[in-house]
Amino acid sequence: MSPDTNAKLIYMANQIATFFKSQPAAEAAEGVATHINKYWEPRMRRKLFEHIDHGGEGLNPLVLEAAAKIRRPEAA
């Protein structure tokens, strides 16, 4: 796995979190999770979870909060 594409994935997740952070607080985490579930291919979600499982460094706290609602793909 390229560190470059991993960094990109973290950046993308944070961008999504930044948008939903500005929405009403009750909908924010749900919004992030729904968005990632709807648009992220399992490989991307898998990499996201691998990163979260390793501490999730650099991820917006809202992504971490949303993680419980993001569908975890089966291990490859």
């Binding site: 796995m1 390229s2 594409t5 990109k8 648009y39 291919e41 399992p42 490989r43 991307m44």
Partner: peptide, 18 residues
């Protein structure tokens, strides 16, 4: 039933070797 890769994601996945 899972979403697929978008063009930039395809290119990233290609660089990753998948």
């Amino acid at each position: 039933n899972e979403p697929g890769l978008r063009i930039p994601n395809m290119l990233d996945a290609a660089v990753d070797g998948t």
